[in-house]
Design a protein around this nucleic acid. Sequence first.
DNA 1: GTCTATATGCTGATAGAC
DNA 2: GTCTATCAGCATATAGAC
Lengths: 207, 207
Amino acid sequence: MAKNNKPQKIRATSVNKILSAAQDEFILQGYKGATVQAIADNAGMPKANVLYYFKSKENIYHAVLEQTLNMWDRGIGDILPEDGPKLAIEKFIKAKITMSFTNPKASKIYAIEIIQGAQHLQDFTRSYLHQWVEKKAKVFQCWIDNGEMPPIDPISLIFLIWSSTQHYADFDNQILTIMNRTHYQEDDITRITNFLTDFILRGCGLK
Amino acid sequence: MAKNNKPQKIRATSVNKILSAAQDEFILQGYKGATVQAIADNAGMPKANVLYYFKSKENIYHAVLEQTLNMWDRGIGDILPEDGPKLAIEKFIKAKITMSFTNPKASKIYAIEIIQGAQHLQDFTRSYLHQWVEKKAKVFQCWIDNGEMPPIDPISLIFLIWSSTQHYADFDNQILTIMNRTHYQEDDITRITNFLTDFILRGCGLK
DNA sequence: GTCTATATGCTGATAGAC
DNA sequence: GTCTATCAGCATATAGAC
């Protein structure tokens, strides 16, 4: 039992259990469909405790979203001018794929939010994401102007890399069914990484 | 007023209004979050009428899904052996993009269903979709064996084409925000079609 | 911190007048 | 076919004993 743990420790443990359970419920049932009772059951504690730590269901959801965006931020990788186009694209693809396979749930929560109109995170796309894409597009444009890569529309390229990598997280159910599997294996991850890296570099005329 | 129309006509009109309103609601609010009242309001009729045509909310949802899958089926295009790899891929990309831009709502309903675990359409991926991919992968394999195209993993290629085209429907909110727009324009559609076609053919080593 | 009991509001669905 | 009134059930959230 955790009776003699520091209060802070109990709180942190409970909060993590709740957030993990809530993430699962929000993915499977949607915001409205997820009930505080179900979250509490999955977290292994009474409903009242859940509402003690987060005073409302909406607060729980916001906490899950915040966690997701932090993950997104850490996992998105970066596109550095000094890397040059080939290495930068390789790194970017690898970062996105790693995130898709290590934390598919974050990708799903994010995808559902955007598809449903980004009702809870308009600020994020409106400012942060917009700036991120603009900044990175400029890096690509420099490489193109310097003749380091052929003239590929940077924004379309970024969208293609996002979509083709995130697909393996968001649609894992469909992909696994089609491939007659229950889970991804280590093999799959390296195979898919190699495929996408080769394919996209070739598409960019860098191979 | 529609008083002297044939009964069949009234029914068909009402059913269509309901399905259209329901599609919007299910996308924005999810299955549980969508209320029969809201669907009725959007369809411009009393709640009781909605439940007169579809005896339950679940029936409405199934009708929306069925409509979506029919759209998917008609819009997926085909990959014909006689077309050869280059033309077949061009046609396939064009079909998927056309569907993404003419009916983004169908793509979204489908995406949410799959992301949430395909709870309402397991049969579809388990049998139909599985067979479709397997059949088309064999066509690609033939072309590869005949030396008509380089050895590109067909299944990974199909996933890449699906994801990169559907992305423009499912994530339209994000994309439009990043591009500082409110709607796609004709320009965008041809530009994106050209980009993806060129890029993917080059990725396949066919250009 | 934990848990039981309950207030309050909204939902899907039905009955029945018109 | 259309619409009003209403029921029964379940959800969030809170109050208060332990």
